[in-house]
Simulated assay, not measured.
Amino acid sequence: MSSPLQSAIDEFLRYLKVERQLSPLTQSNYARQLAALVIIADEMKISAWTQLEPTQVRTMAARSRRTGLSASSLALRLSALRSFLDWQVSQGMLCANPAKGIATPRKTRHLPKNIDVDEVNQLLEIDFDDPLSVRDRAMLEVMYGGGLRLSELVNLDCRHIDMASGEVWVMGKGSKERRVPIGRTAVTWLEHWLPLRVSFGCEDDALFLSTRGHRISARNVQKRFAQWGIRQGVASHIHPHKLRHSFATHLLESSGDLRAVQELLGHANLATTQIYTHLDFQHLASVYDAAHPRAKRGKKT
């Protein structure tokens, strides 16, 4: 029989699945972090969430940190707890959220890595005409052309494509739909792929299929992209997220329009997109350091 602590979590997870319709990965992350907190709460002799106070939340965070949890994982755990307790407040189970004022540890910020335009062109010069190569070229072109997430790419259906306008409908995070232009080259390769698609024995409307006729899996896409990176002689490791980062970086460098890039990426918060301005500044700083007379290092006057 589940404990009172776990029973409330089970209700919350049902809410995330049915009402919020969050992705399975997000639901899994919440479930994992909250399960870990139940274990800590049991060790602290906390038998009901109504007993929880800010000092105990800090103790939970400290105990989590002592187990070797990284700053980013601890931030995720506290975020899950805050969301869960906010939900309890909305349901009348709690009067206030005791985790509300607890500071989240500062995460180390890793700038996204991208590949330059020449490397992208090198990667995309796939001129083989066998069906798998055509499919992979179409996937690469659509992902880079539209800056799609991996989940958005694999979940595309044929009905989501508007070939005339060169746009696709994608379902982003939080079940938010957006219309994304993918460019003429991507449309051209989709035109090559669609007649070949029927030879895969398609069972549904999925745009990109595995050799068995099923919707291609995210793992398969990752594997194929990495193989093409090696095959095309690209120096850096190729994975789907790197193409999305490259799309954003190249677009921002050319346009300088941060709001447009935010819309195209499907970011709910502009702060998420602003990381690409740091990338751009990093490039400018390196040029300055290499070229400006006053930036020369190690020279004595």
Rank of each mutant, 00 (worst) to 15 (best):
K242E: 08
V120I: 13
S165L: 02
I230W: 02
R219G: 05
R20C: 09
P293F: 09
L111S: 09
Q33G: 01
W87Q: 03
T108C: 08
P131V: 07
S83Y: 07
I115C: 04
K113D: 11
V38W: 07
S133M: 06
P293S: 10
A268I: 07
S286T: 15
Q232W: 05
I216K: 01
I275E: 04
I102E: 00
F84T: 07
V154K: 08
A61M: 14
N220E: 10
G201I: 06
A103E: 10
V57E: 05
W193H: 09
D127F: 05
I102F: 02
L190P: 13
Q6F: 09
R106F: 00
V117Y: 14
T50A: 10
Q6H: 14
S255V: 13
T67K: 13
I230H: 04
D127G: 06
L153I: 12
L16M: 12
S47Q: 06
E141W: 08
Q33A: 13
V134G: 06
C202G: 15
V38R: 04
L270Y: 05
P240R: 12
G172W: 04
S165R: 09
D136A: 02
W87N: 09
E53Q: 15
A226E: 13
A285C: 02
T108F: 10
P24F: 03
A295W: 06
S151F: 08
K223D: 10
C158I: 11
E119R: 10
R14L: 07
K107N: 00
Q33S: 09
A71W: 03
V57K: 03
S210T: 02
D205V: 04
D205E: 10
R63Q: 12
S90I: 05
R179W: 00
L252C: 09
S255Y: 05
L16G: 15
R212V: 00
S64C: 11
M139Y: 10
D127N: 14
Q6T: 15
T277Q: 08
D116W: 11
E11G: 01
P181G: 09
S28G: 05
N121S: 12
A260C: 01
G298S: 15
I46F: 05
G172C: 06
V261Q: 03
P240E: 11
A268F: 00
L132N: 00
S3M: 02
T50N: 03
R32T: 14
A75N: 07
L148M: 11
I238G: 00
L209Y: 00
A103W: 03
S72W: 02
E119Y: 03
M44Y: 08
I230K: 13
D42V: 06
M44F: 02
A62Q: 12
M163T: 05
K17N: 04
L37D: 07
